[in-house]
Simulated assay, not measured.
Amino acid sequence: MRISEGDEKAFEALYRHYYGRLKPIVGKYMGDQVDADDILQQAFLKVWLNRETLPEIENIHAWIYKVAYREYLMGLRKKLSYEARLNRYSDTLHADHSQELPTDAAHLEDIRKHIGAVVSNLSPQRRMIYELSRNEGLKIAEIAEKLSLSTQTVKNVLFLVMKMIREHLVAAGYGPLTVIVLLKII
C-alpha cells in the first residue's frame, strides 16, 4: 500500500473517500459539525501516524471506521466531562449566595460595558473574530473560512479574548464563578 510508504497523494485519496462517508455519521451523533470535523481530523491523523501498519490490516474499511469511532467516543467523553464541570460550577454558584448572578438589567448593562471596553481595545483582527463569534453566531470553522485563517488561529484568538474579558470582569469585582457562567449566557 502506497500510504504506508508515505505517499501523501494516496493518503489524500483515502481521506477524501472516507471523510465524506464518516462526517454525516459523526456529525449526527455529536450534534455539531465543528466537533465532527475535529474528531475526523484526529482520526485521520492517527491513520497517517500509523500508516506503516496499514499493509498488515485485512479490512481497511472496518479499521478506519473503528479509529473514527474511538475518536468519537473520546470526543464525547470530553464533551460530557466539560458539561459536568459546568454543572458543578453552576451548582456551586447557586449554593454560594454571595456569588448570585446579577440578572437585573442594570447589572447586565454594566457587564456589557466592561466587555465592550475590552473589545474596543482589541486589534482589528481580534475584534472581528470576537464579533463574528459572539454577535453573528458564526462557528470557528466559518470564521476561519471567512477571514482566510486557520481554525487553530481563530480558537487561539477567541481563547485569548475570553481570558482578557474574564480577567477584566474579575478585576471589576465580579466573582470568578459568576464570570464563567455569565460568559456562557451573554
Rank of each mutant, 00 (worst) to 15 (best):
K66W: 07
V67Q: 02
S120N: 14
V34A: 13
L14I: 11
V157N: 11
R126P: 00
L54C: 05
R16L: 13
S98P: 00
S123I: 01
L138E: 03
A10K: 09
D91C: 02
V161S: 03
A36P: 02
G6K: 12
I185Q: 08
T92H: 07
I140H: 08
E100G: 04
E145N: 12
Q42N: 15
G6D: 04
V157P: 00
M162Y: 10
N87P: 00
M162D: 13
Y65M: 09
E8L: 14
G75Y: 06
E5W: 06
K163H: 12
V34Q: 09
F159V: 03
E145A: 15
S4R: 04
L45A: 11
M30K: 06
W63T: 04
T53Q: 13
L149G: 06
K28V: 01
A141S: 14
Y29E: 13
T92N: 13
Y15M: 01
K9N: 08
I60A: 05
L45V: 08
V118C: 10
E145I: 00
I25D: 02
H17W: 11
Y29H: 14
R21G: 13
E131M: 05
E71G: 00
A84C: 00
S120W: 08
A84N: 11
G20Y: 06
I3G: 05
Y18Q: 05
K146E: 13
D38F: 04
N59E: 13
I111R: 01
Y15F: 15
R85F: 12
H97E: 14
Y130K: 09
D7Y: 12
N59A: 10
E58R: 12
L183C: 09
R70T: 12
D37A: 13
I129P: 04
V67S: 01
V170P: 01
E8R: 15
V26Y: 12
L108I: 08
S81P: 00
K146Y: 05
R88M: 08
F44P: 01
L49M: 14
H168P: 00
S123E: 10
Y65V: 01
L14H: 10
Q42H: 09
F11N: 10
E145H: 14
D32P: 03
L108Q: 14
P55G: 09
H114M: 03
I60G: 02
G137K: 02
R88Q: 13
L122V: 08
R2M: 08
L182V: 14
